[in-house]
Write a protein that binds this DNA or RNA. Structure first.
Length: 525
RNA sequence: CGAGGCGUAGCGCAGGCUGGUAGCGCACUUGGUUUGGGACCAAGGGGUCGCAGGUUCGAAUCCUGUCGCCUCGACCA
């Protein structure tokens, strides 16, 4: 075990700020309090607010200090900086390959959508109307038919499909596009909620409901696999309750992850749209027996929000922790030397980097001069680089390198000869460690309850709750009003977690429970 | 969009009550000493005080409006 020394995570409970006890906590809090004249300048300059003091401040500071993103002059729209962009690019690349491997084809639709398209599907309009950006002028000329900046593209794709589709032989359409969409947000937060965000939107059309439903499930499973194996995010696959459905969907499925403050985050969605959009946009085809039928469509997405999930699932008080499988930089080499031998150490570092790169690793050599080693260590830890290698004159002499995992406090000595295999093993170990730690955290902070009092107490404690529910929308609304928690999803039978089928009575209304299993409730992003 | 808080150098802040032409720490630049866990010394550069009006001989400071950011509420991927 190369990375098991990290203390097991403790849940950050809501209300913990007020419960600070002891001098250590108070000292920490004072360090981060603005305007204190005698505060430690280094803490002000370099540190981030500890998660336990203020999770939200921690998040905002990590995003900025790790150089993932910055605010822009456009209200609610962020700028992804090079490190954030590199991370997003890797996410895009993996998913794009996966779609293509599954016979899906990418295409590109316009950003502007005629306003009247949005109006054609009743639930869709209702869902999106409040957050539409409208373009009603070109130059000085006022448009008779305004456009909206796409909030999602079901409508314009439906419109185009209706022209492309004639026969059942044309189906399925397995399409997707990468791009950004616009949904005006009043309260924004980097990656999690911005008025413009980046995603892929998958859109498929099928000749039968069964085939479309299979597509929806296939994609959900792909998302699950991506989160688990690449991002090391444990997520629960499940179906959304009726009141949490996508505007215009017949069924919505999601993957939900737990952040380190106990809140849920929907990391991806896959929708079965039935014939709602095909009827609204006349997407029909001739069947084998010469009848006319509307296509069954789906849509699905993972957005740049997933980066928020990555930050909030793995990060600690020092900053980010990147799972090796997605990390833009997996290994950073710090040449340690004085003026007379620093250049030599850089050369040695580059040699090692070349060896590691030849094995497919993403490696950076930190050649910065005039910055102390300690600064570099902290800097790369903030950015979450999984493995750091120190290489100095002593090491060179002894034929070793010093290695430290981001997930551990211990440095270890590795023989120079075994460096490549040793580092490879470490990356694998860190990847599985992060998944296990996050999984333990999620399971350890989910409670099964059978009374509404227990329900409220657990939610107040920042946990997820598994409870029976009647399925009544009004009851869901009241629960949300009481506790700020919503139904996250109803785990699928083959979900990795919480899938047990059970019968019971609704924790809120006392009526017979719907769904044949417990529903996951939690506060959410 | 409702309630609250905050906008002064890249970052964090002081100054504002009592108007008189802007300051501190860090960062940055240069030189030197350093370098195995957030270095030190010295000399420098950088701000139309969010923006727009108003009051005044004079506004960072007082008044009005407006924009932005953060928290809470309603909404969402």
């Amino acid at each position: 075990m190369t990375c098991s020394t990290l203390a097991s995570p403790s849940p950050l409970r809501l209300g913990q700020v007020a419960d600070l006890k002891g001098p250590a906590d108070l000292a920490t809090m004072q360090l981060m309090t603005q305007g204190k004249p005698n505060q430690d300048k280094k803490a002000q300059q370099y540190g981030v607010t500890p998660q336990s003091v203020d999770f939200n401040d921690w998040y905002n500071e990590v995003v900025k200090k790790a150089d993932l993103a910055d605010n822009s002059p456009v209200a609610g729209a962020m700028v992804m900086k090079p490190y954030g962009s590199a991370l997003w690019e890797r996410i895009v690349r993996w998913l794009d390959d996966a779609f293509k491997d599954r016979d899906h084809e990418s295409l590109i639709f316009p950003t502007l959508i005629p306003m009247n398209f949005i109006m054609k599907e009743a639930d869709h309009v209702e869902g999106f109307a409040p957050e539409l950006f409208t373009v009603n002028k070109i130059g000085t000329e006022v448009l008779a038919e305004p456009y909206v900046l796409r909030p999602t593209s079901e409508t314009i794709i439906g419109h185009m499909w209706s022209g492309w589709l004639n026969s059942y032989r044309d189906l399925p359409f397995l399409h997707y596009q990468w791009g950004s969409v616009f949904r005006a947000e009043l309260r924004t937060k980097a990656f999690l909620r911005t008025s413009e965000f980046y995603w892929h939107e998958g859109h498929t059309a099928h000749a039968s409901a069964e085939e479309a439903q299979a597509e929806v499930r296939m994609i959900l499973d792909l998302y699950h696999q991506f989160c688990r194996d690449i991002l090391a995010l444990p997520v629960v696959r499940g179906e959304k309750t009726a009141s949490e459905r996508f505007a215009g969907a017949s069924a919505t499925y999601s993957i939900e992850g737990m952040m380190r403050d106990g809140k849920a985050l929907q990391a991806g969605t896959s929708h079965y749209l039935g014939q709602k959009f095909s009827k609204a946009f006349d997407v029909k085809f001739q069947t084998r027996d010469q009848k006319e039928e509307f296509a069954y469509t789906t849509s699905w997405a993972i957005s740049s929000r997933i980066i928020g999930a990555l930050i909030m699932t793995h990060g600690d008080d020092k900053g980010l922790m990147m799972p090796p499988n997605i990390a833009p930089i997996q290994v950073v080499i710090i040449p340690v030397g004085r003026k007379d031998n620093f250049d030599e150490m850089v050369v040695e570092g580059e040699k090692l980097a070349a060896e590691l790169r030849s094995q497919g690793m993403r490696v950076k050599v930190d050649k910065r001069d005039g910055v102390t080693n300690g600064f570099k260590y902290n800097d790369w830890e903030l950015r979450g680089i999984p493995v750091r290698i120190e290489l100095g004159p002593r090491d060179l002499e002894q034929g070793v390198v010093i290695v430290k995992n981001r997930t551990s406090e211990d440095k270890e000595t590795l023989s120079r000869q075994d460096a490549v295999s040793g580092i490879t093993a470490r990356l694998d170990a860190i990847q599985s460690f992060l998944l296990k730690r996050a999984t333990d955290f999620m399971l350890g902070n989910t409670v099964t309850v059978d009374s509404y009092d227990e329900f409220k107490a657990a939610i107040e404690d920042g946990k997820w709750v598994r409870a029976f529910h009647s399925g009544d929308a009004e009851s869901e609304r009241q629960i949300k009003e009481d506790t700020k928690a919503t139904a996250r999803n109803i785990p699928l039978d083959d979900a990795e977690f919480f899938a047990e089928r059970e019968e019971g009575v609704c924790v809120h209304t006392g009526q017979p429970a719907a769904y044949g299993k417990r529903v996951i409730f939690g506060r959410q992003y």
